[in-house]
Structures are given as C-alpha cells and as structure tokens.
C-alpha cells in the first residue's frame, strides 16, 4: 500500500505527510439538548464503511490545511466524489 492524498494546496502527496481526521460527521452540534448518547454518537461512533467514505485529512507535514476527500477503504485509493444518489 502506498497511499497518496490530494491536498487542495499542495497537490497529490505521499499519505504519510497527512494525518487522518476521521469520518465526516458534520459541524459540532449545538450544546443544548445533547444527551450522553447523542454526544457520544457524534464524538466516538463511526460508520466503518467498507467502501467509499468522505473523510477529513490534515496536511500535517505540509501546508497544514484540513480538507475532505473521498477514499475507498477497500482499496485505500482516493476516488472522485461519487455522484449523489437520487
């Protein structure tokens, strides 16, 4: 495996320059009305998709940006954004 990630600033680079930042879970929820369950769900729970997922990456040893990409967890290859299912 030799992961490469496309940084919006620096282009396609060696995956070891990046830090993985988790599945895309959306913005932080408002604090009001959060239960321990719903908060835990936001913080800890993952979909663990075997296939394409949207995820966050940080170009740690580069420009430092956080950005999202799509990646296939079955091949560990970056992929184009899948077309939205209608």
């Amino acid at each position: 495996m030799a992961l490469t990630i496309s940084c919006p600033n620096c282009g396609k680079r060696n995956g070891y320059e990046f830090r993985y930042g988790g599945e895309d879970k959306g913005p932080r929820p408002a604090e009001e009305g959060l239960t321990p369950q719903s908060w835990c769900d936001y913080v800890h729970m993952n979909n663990c998709v075997a296939g394409i997922q949207k995820e966050w990456w940080c170009h740690k040893n580069g420009c430092g940006a956080w950005f999202t990409i799509f990646r296939n967890t079955l091949t560990n290859l970056e992929v184009e954004e899948p077309e939205a299912k209608l």
Partner: peptide, 12 residues
Amino acid sequence: TVEWIRFHTRYD
C-alpha cells in the same frame, strides 16, 4: 496544536 485548533474550527 496547530492541527488541533484547525481541526476543531474546520467547519466554521
């Protein structure tokens, strides 16, 4: 630290 602060403000 830098990535931490940027991570937690990434949607804003």
